[in-house]
């Protein structure tokens, strides 16, 4: 246990070594895994639930479930992939409860036409970069992504916010690769259309300035 701790401090302990130690009952090793991924799980949970209380519960429940089911983790995929899968399911469950709607799923609204054809074709000016770091921008971004259906925003957050690959995202969400790709395209285009409301050039120019 001491060696695990020491190596973890040096940041060189592999994920697999930590998982194996945790399986054998080393709580310190599991604590290290929590520290490694809690921020990511929180972000993903917030994006899906849009409720801070729910997101906190998701973080706790996802890690606890992972710990309780560690025996079932085969090591065929990354621990993180497996963990996010648990977290996404927990988050969707909270969302269902909150909305009192059992039909909330990753497949919701995928048939919508929105985003398949861009409506806004004006350029953006001034550049949104000018708002970087302001709370105004944070509010705009939150409000905008909240309008997307859970399936779209989940794919978007895993691929474009967390920077995971299409293949990893497909595995985490139990979707095919083409399904991830089409959701991602639609999510990106819907967000773009919605953000245009705030950022499009107001002078009717071409936005190239």
């Amino acid at each position: 246990m001491e060696t695990i701790q020491k190596k973890a401090e040096e940041g060189i302990t592999s994920e697999l070594a930590l998982v194996q130690a945790a399986k054998k009952g080393d709580l310190e090793a599991f604590s290290e895994l929590v520290k490694r991924y809690d921020r990511n799980v929180f972000r993903i949970a917030q994006h899906i639930t849009h409720n801070e209380e729910d997101a906190q519960d998701v973080v706790q429940d996802a890690f606890l479930k992972a710990y309780q089911n560690l025996e079932q983790f085969q090591g065929n995929s990354k621990f993180y992939t497996w963990l996010v899968r648990i977290a996404v399911n927990e988050a969707l469950m909270r969302l269902r409860k909150r909305r009192n709607d059992r039909t909330v799923s990753l497949d919701e609204d995928v048939e919508t036409e929105e985003g398949s054809i861009p409506r806004e074709v004006a350029g953006w000016a001034p550049n949104p970069e000018q708002l970087y770091g302001t709370s105004e921008l944070g509010d705009i971004l939150k409000k905008t992504i909240q309008g997307l259906s859970p399936g779209f925003r989940t794919v978007f957050v895993l691929r474009d916010v967390e920077g995971l690959s299409t293949e990893e995202t497909a595995e985490m969400l139990n979707l095919s690769i083409p399904a991830v790709k089409s959701r991602l395209l639609r999510a990106r285009l819907q967000l773009r259309d919605r953000l245009a409301k705030y950022f499009k050039s107001k002078r009717g120019g071409d936005g190239q300035r």
Binding site: R39, Y132, G138, L141, K142, F156, V161, L195
Partner: peptide, 10 residues
């Protein structure tokens, strides 16, 4: 813009 502005930090 979404990648560079993490809106949900812990």
């Amino acid at each position: 813009i979404y990648r560079d502005n993490q809106i949900y930090e812990l």
